[in-house]
Design a protein around this nucleic acid. Structure first.
Lengths: 336, 336
DNA sequence: CTGTTAGCGCGTTCAA
DNA sequence: TTGAACGCGCTAACAG
């Protein structure tokens, strides 16, 4: 690869002139400028981003750490981040933590070593407060994505989980349901906790007794499934709400095992949901995550943070859309 | 951030000694080594990957360009690439071309400017031969992923589309089908062409007349959908095979519009398919892409290529698994 | 309007 | 066993 000195020699100018035509950072006579461009063309020269970054101490790159590269919602966020990054002239360095605090820490280290201008932590594992504290010390510009920790002094972007769940459940209550099974999962995860809170909000609003509601929490999926089976056998809930796609899968399987189906025997709705829900039965009512937009929002926050390092942290919440489908439609019709 | 000189001063050694303990590149007295490590700890020093890369002219990073960050199969490949990358001590720089030749070119440029050690082009747009030729000139280590161009001198990894399709169709023929609609899409895309070829292979093997088969090609999805509707109204095909997830979506919608359903009225199978197919009806027979493994394989090829720049190019084809489900089970049972 | 030159932070000869 | 010094390719301050 040709370097700047070769281009300079060939154009009979100094390297600084070459640099300046490249970056448009000061005026150069049109004629010499042409000579330089010609020389660049002739040599096939390309600016070395490494040397440039070293000198300017800016890499024009950002790091994204996601905690589960397997999930579809992840793909959406990565997509959004990538899109907004190029839009802002940034390139994206991607790392996956696989929900492992250790790998997450390593990933962050690697990214910082590479001198990324900023960091986006998407769905950071709930065990990472330690990491976050260490980040607070060094203060590399950092955005938290998806999982929001209100008490932490970071820019954050998430979805409006609590309010959306409240609306969803309020609607179901409106169509006659009074006994729910909420498959809440590991409520130490902020996202899941917010959804559970939204549920209790709705129950409270409608003066439903929480004692009549089965709120199933826990990290162990097998235990959650078992508990749901038990609750369904007792026959009381008329509606099941699952708080994530994995929990929805597990719930549908459990329902199958106890011989209940939706919407016939029980209403069903899920957060995060499934792709192509329209094509298959049961068509399940779903809350779509604005994953792409969340990625975009994260980059935008980051870019602003880079401009104003000392502005006070902001939290952005994006609205989610409830996609109503047949799995929640039956109740109050066939029965009436 | 502390630099090596500060560490050196603090440990009362020269910077070269610090460098050597960091990289284990020559023997240093255990005692001085300890002093250095202590100084590193005390200063919170971290090696600057940029300067290091500049000096060594190796970045220990690879670039991945995918053509549609929206698709699930993409997520799998990215996941696999990321996984294998860290496994090999490489970090991943991600770019998305959105199936646009121009953006693809820009992305490759950006990555080369950043001096990535190697490049993986996943599902490169079919319009990129021009780009590929320019890559042949510069010869940055490059792997082609998913879409295989047999005539090009690159390392490539893909799936065994043709053979899998042959097996799938052979099986369907075995259960009595003789008239198919193959929704093939844009057969300029190698992946789709291979699948179509697999279909004709199977037809040939079974001595089915191609004149009786409806092979629907074309880039315009609306036209493809219309043509499928027309074919189904004629009522002849007893089995529909869709060559990608988007084509499957479109096919199921078209079937719905003409009032045909699977497996009742017609058998159905799809390449790439849907997540959680087991939970919903119709449960559709699907060919799962080994997306993750393909990503891993690509990185492995790349790592070997970096070791042996002049070895002759290799093509790796991964086997796919056919997941048989109810959408292809009915025929020959209810009828017999 | 253009050229000279000093680093950015590191790895690596060459000497000692 | 260790240190001094050069240069990777570039930007920017300074000089003209």
């Amino acid at each position: 690869m040709a370097t700047m000195v070769e281009v300079a020699r060939r154009a009979k100018v100094s390297v600084s002139t070459v640099s300046h035509v490249l970056n448009g950072t000061r005026h150069v006579e049109p004629e010499t400028r042409q000579r330089v461009l010609a020389a660049i063309e002739a040599t096939g020269y390309r600016q070395d981003a490494l040397a440039r970054a070293l000198r300017r101490s800016r890499t024009d790159s950002i790091g994204l750490v996601v905690s589960d590269a397997g999930e579809p919602a992840f793909a959406g966020m990565v997509h959004g981040v990538e899109h907004a990054a190029v839009e802002n002239g940034l390139t994206l360095v991607l790392a996956n933590s696989a929900e492992d605090a250790d790998r997450e820490k390593k990933a962050v280290q690697t990214l910082l070593n590479r001198r990324v201008d900023g960091l986006i932590l998407a769905r950071a594992a709930q065990s990472d407060p330690i990491l976050l504290q260490s980040l607070e010390l060094e203060k590399p510009p950092t955005i938290l994505l998806d999982r929001i920790f209100p008490e932490l002094p970071f820019d954050q972007v998430g979805a409006d989980n609590r309010e959306t769940m409240r609306q969803l459940v309020a609607h179901l209550i409106g169509s006659g349901h009074t006994r729910f099974a909420l498959v809440a999962g590991d409520t130490r995860v902020p996202t899941l906790r917010e959804r559970m809170d939204g549920f209790t909000d709705a129950a409270f609003d409608a003066r439903l007794s929480l004692a009549d509601q089965a709120i199933i929490t826990g990290k162990d999926t097998q235990a959650v499934a078992d508990e749901l089976e038990g609750v369904m056998k007792s026959g009381e809930p008329t509606a099941v709400v699952a708080c994530s796609t994995p929990l929805a899968v597990l719930s549908l399987q459990a329902l199958g095992r106890v011989g209940r189906s939706t919407p016939g025997d029980v209403a069903f709705a899920a957060f995060d949901g499934f792709d192509n829900s329209d094509l298959f039965h049961p068509q399940v009512t779903t809350v779509r995550q604005p994953a792409f937009d969340m990625g975009v929002a994260a980059v935008n926050l980051l870019v602003e943070r880079l401009k104003a390092p000392d502005a006070s942290p902001r939290t952005v919440r994006l609205r989610q859309r409830i996609e109503w489908r047949e799995s929640t439609e039956r109740y109050g019709r066939s029965d009436s």
